[in-house]
């Protein structure tokens, strides 16, 4: 297990380097720069601005400087938010995404797992059809449809909940974004859970357990649940990352100060350092959560541990 972790961490270094290098040069190859504005800057002013951010140096020097800075954990100053560093922006935005993402995932597990299990146990009965149809709808309806609908019904019409903004994480402001993010996740979790549960329930060792005369409760909770969780674990690793990076639309609609908006704004405004910072952060998150999923897999499944 430790060897697995070490190997994966070692592989992560060149992976990150490739990502950094590619995005560094791709960004600079995009037409227009951070200081291309409707009002073109007079040459001397532009020179002053570029000198301040070392944009006047050869691109390889900039690249080398950037690498040494990120080794120290310094993502540099933002070019567009001119009084702020990228680190400060990420420190401010990441907790927002982690909070709503965390709650959404929690909600998904809390609702999706029992839903899927019940569907599997009542296979091909009304409950199964209803919950799976609901899950299908949850997966197919995109969040940019769900969110305005929720806003229209619960905020505009009923005045129960605010239509947006973060308000330092006030619970009533969190409800709609969390629900929006959670709905498709609940659906995914429920479907995955149902599928794997059905498979496990049909496997020989469950038949054995039942043949031994164990009560159904014990069969499900002690014997079926653990193997049935395996696909869910491998889903959760990328799902955490997807929830964090995919919350851009939700952030946009509800006006949340997460990092997703920095990513989009940064790319469109050619805020090189901001985009790089968020890209590297996303890359590290993807690597980390995939690793965590693999480790958990090993913990739950002795077969993986032995390999």
């Amino acid at each position: 297990m430790i060897r697995l972790v070490l190997r994966r961490l070692l592989v992560a270094i060149p992976t990150l380097l490739v990502i950094i290098t590619l995005s560094f040069f791709l960004l600079r190859a995009a037409p227009g720069g951070p200081f291309t504005e409707a009002r073109r800057l007079p040459p001397q002013v532009l020179a002053n601005v570029e000198r301040m951010y070392h944009l006047n140096e050869p691109v390889w020097d900039q690249y080398g400087r950037y690498l040494t800075h990120i080794l120290r954990g310094d993502f540099g100053p933002s070019y567009v938010y001119r009084s702020t560093t990228v680190n400060a922006l990420i420190e401010q935005g990441l907790p927002v995404d982690l909070t709503i993402g965390g709650f959404a995932l929690g909600l998904a597990l809390l609702i999706g797992m029992p839903l899927g299990m019940l569907a599997a146990l009542r296979q091909n009965h009304a409950w199964d059809y209803v919950s799976m149809a609901g899950a299908m709808a949850g997966i197919s309806v995109p969040n940019f449809v769900v969110a305005p609908l929720l806003i229209l019904l619960l905020a505009v019409k009923a005045h129960w909940l605010p239509a947006g903004s973060w308000s330092n994480g006030a619970p009533d402001h969190m409800v709609l974004p969390v629900v929006t993010l959670a709905l498709p996740l609940i659906a995914y979790v429920a479907r995955l859970m149902r599928g794997s549960m059905v498979e496990v329930l049909n496997s020989p060792f469950i038949r054995t357990a039942r043949a031994k005369g164990l009560p159904e409760r014990t069969v499900i909770l002690r014997h079926a649940l653990r193997p049935a969780l395996m696909p869910l674990i491998s889903f959760l690793g990328p799902a955490v990352v997807n929830t964090l990076t995919g919350s851009i639309v939700v952030e946009e609609i509800f006006g949340l100060p997460g990092i997703g908006r920095f990513f989009v704004d940064g790319a469109l405004n050619r805020d090189y350092t901001l985009v790089m910072g968020v890209t590297i952060l996303y890359a590290m998150l993807i690597i980390a959560f995939n690793l965590i999923a693999d480790v958990l897999y090993g913990v739950l499944d002795p077969r993986v541990r032995q390999q």
């Binding site: 806003i151 229209l152 905020a155 239509a163 947006g164 903004s165």
Partner: peptide, 14 residues
Amino acid sequence: PSASSALARYFAGD
């Protein structure tokens, strides 16, 4: 940023 979100929040009284 989005005009539609601003409208919704105006209608919601925010």
